[in-house]
Design a protein around this nucleic acid. Structure first.
Lengths: 333, 333
DNA sequence: CTGAAAGCGCTTACAG
DNA sequence: CTGAAAGCGCTTACAG
């Protein structure tokens, strides 16, 4: 069942059928109606490989979402789509699993789809450095900075993760906490988690205390049970902590459980701050004080920057504000 | 930069270049080496639309994952991939958002990719009924039954959701609970949530009590805040409940919060059972008693059934066991 | 408003 | 082992 079958069945030529498929003008109402009817009856769907092989350009903007289940990304997609739609641009979204290299996926995609522009929700700067030069369309990386990468078609919009983490620690400090532990991420990794870690370190240093990585820090992945184990190890090792800063809410959620299992109440015995403002921190008992990135703002700025880029503007690297959300997991001492 | 450029640059013909791209025999080592070198140097990547336009068959098995952030599905993917790999079959995965109709996506995909087989993690029987007849490859629907649909290339593997829900209610009953409320899902919907609801209804009926939908039931979406509100409404309306069965763990998580906000302790004042065994129920305080579906089993059986289907076997509809996981949210009264 | 024809970038018999 | 040629299913000037 191809376009020729439809042409034959409708009594028109393939050119005309193609025009109705693409909603183009210069087709009589009669022809359009007839052809639509035949297509519906046959359940015909155009072969998209053949289409894209020809229309090698100008397919919609595509958003790549790194990993699944990231609430922040889910919250960005909607407003992003809306902002783009306001400028009459469609946006397709592709979810990538954690193992896939976003830039390779984008290269493949570009190869076959030739999108007008691409946006990456999340992504490892490292991969961009390696192979982004192969991609040609204007792009924007969201939630991570591409400022150091120096590609002229790669913009970025992000919060200042370092400052946000520093703010979290500062909040704890203001509440009287002096013995603050940190869990999550990895010192070596050159990415978001290490920026947050640096922020925590800096905030402490500015207050005259050097973060003791041996004693007061425990690295871990962004998973509940990793957070659970990290909190457990940390508390067993150093018992004089009055507060813990978890680099992510998932980690904080696991930590909350670990604390409960050790008979510690939050915030009675120990205070806890998370990062990301996921549903965990909104619904847990106690609700967790955390750092929120504004999905709306991120979305809106990304859309505008991408649009500008498609219009020929050079890459920009924008930093948007974050917010400390005070809830129930920190007490003053 | 296309295959002809590579042919020209290497001094060979396009046919030979195509053979090396596809790792086919009948190419001299010399030619292969030379062509590979040229391709690498040019950073050439074949246009996949053109490839698939020709090779209209035999692309890898594809798994469609409905919605994002479903932990169970995430847990199935790995073992599924592994089981298929053991039979030398690759598997690609495509995440679909909640609004997209899985079957339409599959039809499109089939159109361009012609996969050997497809597996659906989740999916609405309704959509399958409407348009699955257009798809030709052997398929398997996982976590929902396709037994009633009668397509001979559509198998399914699922737990008995009705029995599992009945088991959850029975567990509460055995612990002495007689006034049991239910939250989640929708009576009208012909899908997983309604099966669970029917199970709860049946378990109660078998014990001589008719589930009072007006008083003891509150419908809601599978979201934390929906669970929160549903629990709140239910408890405000009917104050003599000693236990609540939430049709999903996300719902249970929201409910747990609502209960805490009303000053009710779980399980002290009220018992709670969830469904799905997500990280919520494993790490919340208290940990939630719930129903677990075995991701491994689901994956393994799905793989085998798909493989059989590709070998020509007729569709089968398999029901795998579930398990009640007792944790900390139910007390005996 | 409509159709015939060229061409998108590949793969695959078919000759050699 | 290699190349010339046909063809996958579309879209898009170009004539009419």
């Amino acid at each position: 069942m191809d376009i020729r079958d439809i042409a034959a069945a409708s009594g028109y030529g393939v050119g005309t059928v193609s025009r109705v498929i693409n909603n183009q003008p210069n087709v009589s109402d009669r022809a359009r109606k007839r052809i639509l009817a035949v297509m519906a009856e046959c359940g015909y769907e155009p072969n998209s490989n053949a289409r894209y092989l020809k229309m090698r350009s100008q397919t919609p903007i595509t958003a790549f979402v790194m990993g699944v289940g990231n609430r922040l990304f889910d919250d960005i997609i909607g407003p992003l789509q809306a902002a783009l739609a306001a400028a009459d641009e469609e946006m397709a979204v592709t979810y990538l699993d954690d193992d896939s290299r976003e830039v390779h996926a984008a290269i493949d995609y570009q190869q076959t789809r030739r999108p007008k522009g691409m946006v990456f929700l999340g992504g490892e700067p490292r991969y961009f450095r390696e192979s982004f030069h192969e991609i040609e369309a204007p792009c924007v990386l969201v939630t991570n900075s591409a400022a150091d990468l120096g590609f002229d078609n790669l913009s970025s919009v992000t919060i200042d993760n370092e400052a946000a983490a520093a703010r979290a620690v500062e909040h704890l400090w203001e509440r009287g906490h002096r013995r603050i532990g940190v869990i999550g991420g990895d010192r070596a990794e050159n990415s978001i988690s290490s920026q947050r870690l640096r922020g925590a370190e800096r905030a402490l240093r500015e207050r005259g205390v050097e973060l003791d990585f041996e004693r007061d820090y425990e690295p871990c992945a962004f998973l509940e049970d990793a957070g659970y184990n990290a909190a457990r190890r940390l508390l067993e090792r150093t018992s004089d902590l009055t507060a813990v800063f978890a680099l992510g809410d998932v980690i904080a959620f696991g930590a909350l459980r670990a604390l409960a299992d050790q008979g510690l109440s939050v915030p009675g015995d120990i205070s806890l701050v998370g990062f990301d403002d996921t549903s965990f921190s909104q619904f847990s008992v106690p609700r967790i004080t955390t750092i929120r990135q504004s999905a709306e703002l991120l979305a809106e700025r990304s859309a505008q920057i991408l649009l500008d880029g498609m219009g020929g503007s050079p890459a920009v690297h924008e930093v948007v504000p974050f917010q400390l959300i005070e809830r129930e997991s920190v007490r003053s001492i």
